[in-house]
Amino acid sequence: MVDLAILCVDDEQIILTSLELQLKKHFGNQFIYEFAESAGEAMEIIDELVEGGIRIVLIVSDWLMPGTKGDEFLINVHQQHPEVVKVMLTGQADLDAIERTKNQADLHRCLYKPWTEDELKEAILTGVERIDGK
């Protein structure tokens, strides 16, 4: 039974679908993939997964979303689950927000839309390695 999960958060479904296709292609059944369209939904999923005994290894989050922004969301997650690797995927860079997330949520990578497959793969692989290394 797979008990490692990757969570993707973005308000755009097309991004989530793209991520799903890419992640499944590269990592197949190594992880459970969950997708949320907002930070609120993501928090629910995190709670559900944690309850179900599933370990979240990595979160890929958009920055500019309705309601809670990516930086705030990742910082919140970091306070509860500091071990989770955080990756930001954004189409509009707000340098302050990225800096804040780096400092306060130990941001692992920040990817810019449109991202390349290799960038994403590298971010996830290095992220997972970080966990394994610990």
Binding site: I14, G91, Y112
Partner: peptide, 12 residues
């Protein structure tokens, strides 16, 4: 941002 988002989706 609006264009980069679908572009990212298309690309991937």
């Amino acid at each position: 941002h609006e264009i980069n988002t679908p572009l990212g989706a298309i690309n991937s």
